[in-house]
């Protein structure tokens, strides 16, 4: 088992502008859906990992920019427990 680096560069990206059908399960409704970025981040010496991006403004996304992984609550389980997901955010 080898630990992947936390930071890498954005290899490619898009913005998901419509709400996917099931199995998409974010707790959102058609009304509350917020478009989200998706991209592959190249982790040096490791692999490219696909993940959601915290940024959804295409003007603020560009190939080659520095990104870091973040772990945040994605949705709540039926019993109210946070389900944690990973995503990538631009390095400030």
């Amino acid at each position: 088992m080898e630990k992947l680096p936390n930071q890498g560069t954005l290899w490619t990206w898009t913005v998901q502008r419509f709400m996917p059908k099931s199995p998409y399960n974010s707790g959102e409704t058609q009304e509350s859906f917020t478009p989200y970025g998706v991209g592959y981040v190249e982790l040096p010496g490791g692999v490219r990992v696909e993940g959601r991006l915290t940024e959804n403004d295409p003007k603020k996304l560009s190939i080659g920019m520095e990104m870091e992984v973040v772990f945040e609550p994605y949705r709540k389980d039926e019993d109210g427990t946070d389900v944690i997901g990973f995503s990538f955010r631009p390095v400030e």
Partner: peptide, 19 residues
């Protein structure tokens, strides 16, 4: 992978052509 909204063929082709 599907729950987080990444299992979309549309995204793949968008990301491939973006690159």
């Amino acid at each position: 992978y599907g729950e987080m909204g990444m299992m979309m063929t549309t995204q793949f082709f968008a990301m491939k052509i973006q690159k």
